[in-house]
Amino acid sequence: MDETSIGWWGVPLAIFAGAIRISTPFLFVSLGEMVTEKSGRINLGLEGTLIMGAMSAYGIAYLTGSPWLGVLVAGLVGTIFGMLHAGICSLPKVNDIAVGIALMLFGTGLAFYLGKPLVQPQAPNLPSFNFGWWSDLQQVQSALKINALFIIGVVLAPVFLWALRNTRWGLILRIVGDSSDAARAMGYSPLAVRLVATAFGGFMAGVGGSFLSLYYPGSWNEGLSSGQGITAVALVIFARWNPMNCLWASLLFGGASALGPALQSVGVTQGYYLFNAAPYVLTLLILILSSSSHRHIAGAPGELSVTR
């Protein structure tokens, strides 16, 4: 091995860096969706919201020169999409899953249509923090370059957990999610609470999208998302509606995604199709191992249509 190569050390390093980099959009979308689902509604449209967020963040960052303004606008666009979902679902006899799929298609198509002129321009990227200053190795420095959005997401996860358990808002959210009749009896409007929860979920998904276009890969194009929005919705169920678990699940998924290229680069080429599928195989495995036919899925909101 030559001196600039780090050989097998590249594998754990790549998994670490991948866990942080790839997990960020998953983290934001799943935290937001967790709040939405806690209110008893599932929003499958977040893939469309994510891509709309990516497109609008890129456009705004390009026009104004401020990536953070782009993040904010992405969140607002996501909020609008969330409110749209909640608004349609407020009508009687409307299925939230069907509306979600429709909004996923609508959001994706609209983003591609509006985003055509944004393929070529270069927008400024979000900043990152360099935690690798202590190392002389370029590889370590690069792996420890941690983006600001990830740090925000990591802080948000325990805050969400605390807020769900200890605040009045968290309690109302859980009541509405577990039994809308009980919520109504207590004088809360389930529809209004769900509107806020879905709008918030949309905001987070929009911000998650801005990470894709403004940090990594850091450009706007039609193939930008490889299904992160829809995967994140599944991660929420995987995480059993617990914000801290959302964080761990996102990290696990991110790290597993980086496994394929990292192993190939050190010469492991046997079964590379399998390594590339590692995140999905891992998700399936954990779901099977942690499932039980004897009890209701722990932590599942009672009103959620997929668990009823």
């Binding site: 091995m1 030559d2 600039t4 190569s5 780090i6 050989g7 590249g10 390093l13 790549a14 860096a17 991948g18 790839i22 370029q138 590889q139 690069s142 990594y216 890969p217 450009s219 194009n221 193939g223 930008l224 490889s226 995604s257 980086a258 290229p261 990292a262 190939q264 680069s265 050190v266 080429t269 590379y272 199709y273 590339n276």
Partner: peptide, 28 residues
């Protein structure tokens, strides 16, 4: 020459990861 098969013609995230992995292995 070192190589990584990414199994796609277009996936910015994966392509970028492969680039990083190759650079980590001393490709300049």
């Amino acid at each position: 020459l070192k190589f990584i098969m990414v199994n796609t013609w277009y996936d910015p995230g994966k392509e970028g990861d492969a680039a990083k992995a190759l650079i980590d292995q001393g490709c300049d």
